[in-house]
Design a protein around this nucleic acid. Structure first.
Lengths: 135, 135
DNA sequence: TTAATTGCAAATCCTTTGCAGATTC
DNA sequence: GAATCTGCAAAGGATTTGCAATTAA
């Protein structure tokens, strides 16, 4: 019982192409706009559907932002960790080989097989900290 | 210019009381139900408003679950980390003093002030792994 | 008294669904 | 030709807002 691969359609090709051209997390609506900008008309409904399929197939990562939107990004092999500014939303990608080892150890200690992990550090960036101090 | 403290109302007292009695993250709707269960009728709108105020005042932490809901919890000093089974959803709380140090160092290195962090390890628990092997 | 707070209903926003017509295989 | 995929319009679910009535200070 193999999952059939989706049919190659103009819409799927276009969405796939946009996903390849961006490496930050983007909302479905952002992707819809990007498609429109390049002249590829794809309905928002379809964008949502393709994104949902891709997420289920494990081809894209999904996360939720504070505004209640889902953000999508093509999966990369490495796990990613982010540092996010609570004020301006600035995001810094950080590496964490030490943490990779730690998460794995934690899983093993508890009898789990690790599949993936997500680490998000919420803080205030230097600029925003400065703004807060001065007013 | 001091922010005036909110008036003491039956509703605010009730919400505050529920928040104190729970230490896990709960949705606004959950809190609304809990209030109703104790016999404290507070409109859902008001629950949302009080929660939003509390979050802005830094009295409660907010995060988003995958269903798109906001979850609230009275701020605690300790950060929590979870190990989640991808198959059965079993959740194990783990401690990570080493990681506390790491997240803090990462923030500092990047000029950020750390506010909080979330770590979620997704894996497969021993039971589910066994099930996968046998059937 | 009087400015803040509440509750209801209606409005928003993001996302999902039903369904008929267009497409891929 | 048959099973998928699309797009539209409508439905859903969480959260917010307008506004008149209520209430704490």
């Amino acid at each position: 019982m193999t999952t059939p691969r989706p049919r190659t359609t103009r819409q799927r090709t276009a969405v796939s192409s946009v996903l390849s051209s961006v490496d930050e997390f983007r909302s479905a609506q952002d992707i819809h706009s990007l498609l429109r900008d390049r002249g590829d008309e794809v309905s928002l409904t379809t964008v949502y559907r393709i994104l949902a399929d891709s997420a289920e197939a494990g081809e894209v990562d999904v996360l939720r932002n504070d505004g209640g939107e889902s953000l999508y990004r093509r999966c990369s092999t490495a796990h990613h960790h982010h540092l996010v500014c609570a004020d301006c939303g600035r995001t810094v990608e950080i590496s964490g080989s030490a943490v990779e080892a730690w998460t794995n150890a934690m899983a093993t200690e508890n009898g789990f097989t690790e599949i993936s992990h997500t680490i998000e550090i919420l803080g205030r960036c230097a600029d925003c900290t400065a703004l807060h101090r001065t007013g």
